[in-house]
Design a protein around this nucleic acid. Sequence first.
DNA 1: AACTGTTACGAACTTCGTAACAATA
DNA 2: TATTGTTACGAAGTTCGTAACAGTT
Lengths: 86, 86
Amino acid sequence: MELRQLRYFVAVAETGNISTAAMKIFLTQPALSRQIKALETEIGQCLLERRAHSVHLTPVGEGLLREARELLQHVDQVLDRVRGAG
Amino acid sequence: MELRQLRYFVAVAETGNISTAAMKIFLTQPALSRQIKALETEIGQCLLERRAHSVHLTPVGEGLLREARELLQHVDQVLDRVRGAG
DNA sequence: AACTGTTACGAACTTCGTAACAATA
DNA sequence: TATTGTTACGAAGTTCGTAACAGTT
């Protein structure tokens, strides 16, 4: 699991739509779609219900969204602390 | 900052020696040396004092070691929870 | 001389973007 | 038909290993 994938997933979850999320993070739809799928494969769980004009988080996806946000905040904390330690 | 780099850094910190750490994680010395240096560059802080037959953590490095361990535990927690959520 | 870490360069791997496709309103 | 997500394939970027180097005991 890579931090990049978690950041991508959060973007999709917040947008509810892969295309728009891809634009927000300066990526193309296919690249984003692939990374989300890779994350699902590694976790072994379905994170999104693919619908016609949007994607909807599964319960597992909702859980991961909360966890991912906390984890990414944690990463930022670490960076801030270490950079400030100089 | 990548999780991979944090894992590499923890390995070096625990071993006190890049060569041995590299073997433990099935990597070569140059690859490990580069990634540690890249981490230092990104953080903007020196993490290791390079000595003759070993490396020694700077105070900043000691701090990052604690933070990195916590963060990597956090990552494992997230994976366990999400995988168990199925 | 034997051990450490670093730098240079080409190979392997991963991710990316474009193009073509499938599905739904 | 217009919008969405997915799959295929070659290009770009990153990491890796080998080789050559520099420093310390």
